[in-house]
């Protein structure tokens, strides 16, 4: 299976002079296309830092982060921005939808940035919203949607541009267990049916159970990588 992400001796340290705090220390791992991977660990273990580095939202102090064959640690701000637009989807714990845009417009936003035509955007987003279970709710603003529905919009936004991987930072932390299960079902279905690579952080054992690859982090280091039975299909493989 194609390697979609590679981390090579990645270190992220904060602070100046003698006072330094290591958020990640000498971390190396790889992720294949179609993986459904969870970064697990307690608070402060480096989950969010790792997601930020993978997503190009932050730069490593040392080491190399490669996304789809591109060393993103060396990219300029503009190039990073373009890479995020085309190759990475984000799902945030607090949904982070744009409050002045409707569900449809939130999901459409990335496609608009990519320059897709109105017709193409409409076709794709209507189908996506249906897929994530928001059929008929496209004209609702985020404030008119429940937490679970907002997170579904966020997932639709993340996968609209067909990115190489989707990063989700504690995607179920703000919803109840029933909604969390439904969201995990959705992400798992998108992963198995469409072959979308998901990397999500969590410290919820119920969520960890659903991951097929589990990376345990502790104090900024990988403690263990746990591989489970693969259910993932190759993209477009029938």
């Amino acid at each position: 299976m194609k390697e979609i992400l590679g981390l090579e001796a990645v270190t992220k340290e904060y602070g100046q002079g003698d006072i330094k705090v290591f958020a990640l220390k000498d971390v190396s791992m790889s992720v294949n296309q179609g993986d459904f991977l969870a970064l697990a660990g307690p608070s402060g273990s480096g989950k969010t830092t790792m997601l930020n580095l993978i997503g190009g939202l932050d730069r490593p102090t040392h080491g190399k982060v490669e996304v789809d064959g591109v060393d993103i640690s060396r990219l300029s701000g503009g190039a990073l921005s373009r890479l995020r637009l085309h190759k990475i989807g984000f799902v945030f714990q607090a949904y982070n939808l744009i409050p002045v845009l409707t569900a449809y417009e939130n999901a459409e936003y990335v496609l608009m940035l990519q320059g897709a035509s109105v017709k193409e955007r409409k076709r794709k987003i209507m189908s996506l919203l249906k897929e994530v279970g928001l059929d008929g709710k496209e004209n609702r603003y985020p404030r008119e949607l429940s937490g679970g529905q907002q997170q579904r919009v966020a997932i639709a936004r993340a996968i609209a541009a067909e990115p190489a991987l989707v990063l989700a930072d504690e995607p179920t932390a703000n919803v109840d267990s029933k909604t969390a299960k439904a969201l995990l079902d959705l992400m798992e279905r998108l992963n198995t049916e469409k072959g979308i690579t998901f990397i999500f952080s969590t410290h919820d054992p119920a969520v960890m159970d659903r991951a097929r690859k589990l990376v345990h982090l502790k104090d900024g280091k990988i403690e263990e990588i746990e591989e489970k039975e693969s259910k993932t299909r190759e993209p477009n493989a029938d």
């Binding site: 997503g55 921005s81 409050p99 940035l113």
Partner: peptide
């Protein structure tokens, strides 16, 4: 700020 950070994260250019 949070909204701008989100927009930048999902690929919006600072110029936009």
């Amino acid at each position: 700020q949070r909204e701008f950070a989100t927009l930048l994260a999902i690929g919006t250019s600072p110029l936009f």
